[in-house]
Simulated scan of single mutants.
Amino acid sequence: MTVVGPNGLGYVNVPRSLSLMMSSGYDRRAGGISAVSYSGGMLLGVSRAVWAYDGVGINLIVSAGNEAVTHLADYVDFLAGDPATTSIGLIIDKTRNWPATNSPFVVSSGMATHCT
């Protein structure tokens, strides 16, 4: 069985009200944004910031941890094929096995942000 992590905060599927994340509850609005981060804290910050904008919501958020089993490429590959995901946000410090995708996504790495 493939799992998320270890060393991450978990996974949230907002439309299904499924939260497998080790954090306190907060309001989430369903929408098309999916995000993956190595840092659970940064991911929670982004998802809380989304709440501030009416009409913007989250589909899936994943705290990837240290990628012992699943990798960033696995998540991006899945999200690129997910019809409920309209954009992908990544908060990362490294990449390996980068997938080829035509889906729009934003990558934040340190102080630089890259959009495709």
Rank of each mutant, 00 (worst) to 15 (best):
S109I: 14
G32Q: 06
R48N: 07
T70F: 01
G57D: 00
D77P: 01
N7H: 02
Y26A: 06
V69W: 01
A73H: 06
A80T: 08
G32H: 03
G32S: 10
T86Q: 12
F78S: 11
R48Y: 02
S109K: 12
V4R: 01
S34Y: 02
D82A: 13
S39I: 02
G8L: 03
I92F: 00
R29V: 11
G41K: 10
D27G: 06
G10K: 02
Y75C: 10
A112E: 14
T113D: 00
I92M: 02
V3D: 10
V14I: 07
Y75K: 03
G41P: 03
I33S: 00
V46R: 02
W98Q: 12
S24E: 13
F105H: 10
T116G: 15
N13M: 01
V12I: 15
D54G: 09
A64V: 06
G25N: 12
G81S: 09
E67C: 03
S17E: 14
M21I: 14
L43V: 03
M22L: 10
W98Y: 12
P83S: 15
D77H: 12
L9N: 09
L79Q: 05
G10Q: 05
G55D: 07
M111K: 15
A112Q: 11
G110V: 03
V107A: 09
S23V: 14
P99N: 01
G10P: 05
M22C: 05
V62L: 12
S34H: 04
S47K: 08
A80V: 02
A80K: 08
A80S: 15
I92C: 03
N59Q: 10
D54Y: 07
T113H: 04
P83N: 11
D54F: 04
G89A: 14
I61F: 14
V56A: 11
I33C: 04
G25H: 10
E67W: 00
A49K: 09
A64G: 08
A80E: 07
S24P: 07
G40K: 08
I92L: 06
L20Q: 04
I61K: 04
P6H: 02
V69Q: 07
P104V: 12
T2M: 12
G40H: 07
G40C: 04
V3W: 15
G41Y: 05
S63N: 08
A73D: 06
S63L: 06
V56M: 13
M21T: 14
P99Q: 03
V4Y: 02
A68G: 12
M22Y: 04
P104F: 12
S37P: 03
A68F: 00
V36E: 03
I92P: 00
L60K: 15
S109N: 08
